[in-house]
Amino acid sequence: MPRTRHFGAVVAGAAVAAVAIGPVSAQAKTTITMSGSTSIAPLATKLARGYGKASFRIFQGGSDIGIADVSRGRVSIGNSSRDPQSSDPGGLQFNRVARDGVCIVTSPSNPMSSLSIQQVQAIFTGRVRNWSDIPGAKVSGTIDLVVRTPASGTQDAFQNIFLGQSLRVSSSASQKASNGLVQQTVRSNKNAIGYVSFDFAKGVSAVPYRGVACNLRNAKSGQYGGVRNFWMVTRGAPKGATKSFIDYVRSSRGQRIVASDWVPIR
């Protein structure tokens, strides 16, 4: 008797399982997986929602993680906010999908009218350490540098756009592990200056660079200098579902979504 009941339970369990699995497998969509740059993740999420013809799993972790993941075939697309490097694994194709600005930001109580490339370099390398040495500063006292950790895409963009290869950020600068932490620190400290990805310039004062304001319009028109590329990296040329998604992102419909907060490529 107990044995029969047991058997019945198994049958019932199997039936439930079959019913539960049935509809899922019937309407399964292709899944596109992504990992990589935390700067690209919000854009990728928006694009995925707009696309609708596939389901998405989007992980972050940083540009290098995205590149490593895609080269090992762990994800279909690796998101990178830094340009290709000679040390990247071979056989990858970098597909440009958008551009993004790096804004120099100061506290809202210390809005700056303009900084030149020389001033940016002098401040961030630690040659100038006091706000009274910067014409136009609304505060006095020491300059607090807020930068990103060396391995981040934003730091990479700032280094490449503003400092070049030979200069280095002052060793006394305080390093933050995310754009949000830089934004928060600069907002609450009137002596601070830092740099953030375009999306994080709200609530802080974005400094015009070479007299051009750091905003979307100037970045789109190419007047603003502090701009970098967003890449969706694939192993070899994109194929199948991945190809149709990247084609969509680069199409005018996809670029309209890019334009909501970022800089479209055309």
Binding site: D64, T149, P150, A177
Partner: peptide
């Protein structure tokens, strides 16, 4: 370790 997680793919780091 947490701060440098983004650079894990650079082998020596």
């Amino acid at each position: 370790i947490v701060d440098n997680r983004e650079g894990l793919s650079a082998v020596p780091l």
